[in-house]
Amino acid sequence: MKFRLKIWRQAGPDQPGRFEEYTVDNISPDMSFLEMLDELNEELVRQDKDPIAFDSDCREGICGACGLMINGMAHGPKLGCTTCELRMREFPDGSLITVEPFRADAFPVIKDLVVDRSALDRIIAAGGYISVNTGSAPDANAIPIPKEIAEEAMDAAACIGCGACVAACPNASAALFTGAKISQLALLPQGHPERERRVISMVNQMDIEGFGNCSNHGECEAACPKGISIVNIARMRREYIRAVRTGGQVRASV
């Protein structure tokens, strides 16, 4: 297969960027999108040119390192798929493909298609955990958790932290990312003691990082490679309302 590529090039965070056009040929339809870019990069290296910078690691859709805007869609046109899993057979032979970095002010561009997503780590650091020191845990079966609840928590926990939700959101909101973690921990009994502090702290951090509001467009769910549902955003809001009403204090359990 053959493709024309229009790719965003930007030397550094404060440098202006621009699109450049490339052509790749002899691409196997089984190649992943990143392998296609690898091929292009090999060619650029051979020509003594600077290869296109992009992040990736596991190349099987679980680490969340990869993530490109492909033809205006986070991780490309296929639903439930990361950029590294996307195969070239999804594109018509000979077509023009536009590639941009994930854009959000909270995700500054580092180089070309590489962005800084550490804001997501800081949201987790603000409260996306259960405070349990190593060694202090009771027996794992001490607290039974209904299968349905465990499954629902797992649905939310499946987040790979790629940032596609932010990238796809017209408002660059991190509500799905944050909501998924808050949901997971709010569903499990282990997460209850800290639920009020957690949601307030994480939401504050989300705002400090400069993410937008959620306008309920639902683009995040469509872009999410793990199909995480926006019901998790609703659950986060319930948690938030509850926490604000109690002044962030732990509500005495009845």
Binding site: A140, K147, A157
Partner: peptide, 20 residues
């Protein structure tokens, strides 16, 4: 101890209907 620790952290391991 590992399983205890992970469950306490909120790792959503697969469960049976009885919650175990």
């Amino acid at each position: 101890n590992i399983i205890d620790q992970a469950v306490a952290q909120g790792v959503p391991f697969a469960r049976e209907y009885g919650g175990m």
